[in-house]
Nucleic acid binder design. Sequence first.
DNA 1: ATATATACCTTGACAGGTGAGGTATGTTGT
DNA 2: ACAACATACCTCACCTGTCAAGGTATATAT
Lengths: 106, 106
Amino acid sequence: MSIASDLIRGHTETIILKHLLETDNYGYEINKSIQEKTNNQYELKEATLYTAFRRLEQAGHIMSYWGDQTTGARRRYYSITPLGREFYKKSIEDWQHAKELIDLLI
Amino acid sequence: MSIASDLIRGHTETIILKHLLETDNYGYEINKSIQEKTNNQYELKEATLYTAFRRLEQAGHIMSYWGDQTTGARRRYYSITPLGREFYKKSIEDWQHAKELIDLLI
DNA sequence: ATATATACCTTGACAGGTGAGGTATGTTGT
DNA sequence: ACAACATACCTCACCTGTCAAGGTATATAT
């Protein structure tokens, strides 16, 4: 059992930011982590993942740099900014609030 | 404090169906009911409301008929179908599931 | 007369998600 | 040696639901 796009929509950025709160990380690894956490019930589509990174960087919520892999494919690491942390906090509050309203209405 | 479009997206149809479970109703009244329930924290935009009605009718989840108002503006009443009830039930389950996954990920 | 409330509707723009395609490196199986 | 797979990135065109902005029509209150 999966999850509909329209239900996850709007959470993509929050999910990514959550994965950057403690350590920097790169796209592929973040997505694998999502799959593991959800027992393969959910994964971000690559196009969704990378466009979200662009939006977040554009908005100043994350910053990126290339890892110095001496072997294997190159990795672009992302780091959350102070602004990104604020945005994350606000998103969590919005979600708590939205949950209540939706539960009230459906 | 309001609620972001992207967080409510995908719930519009469920919200409408919920309002039709017990009695037939019409658009304007349904929207007022939503505002009252949420203490004016949320309302469906008219365009959203009416396009959702079209989708639901197209999908066979609701049926419509004109009320016989002798005075005042005409009303188009909507009635939920058995298929609509099934869809509603499924949507609630999807929501419960989505909530868990989102809470796990953010 | 004018404003407000009721009640419906459509069109075009916008934004996020996605399918389908691409590039490149390293490892594992036969 | 070669194929297949895993790792890791990226972009473009398309789809869908929301919304701003416009419209129509009737009844009531000031």
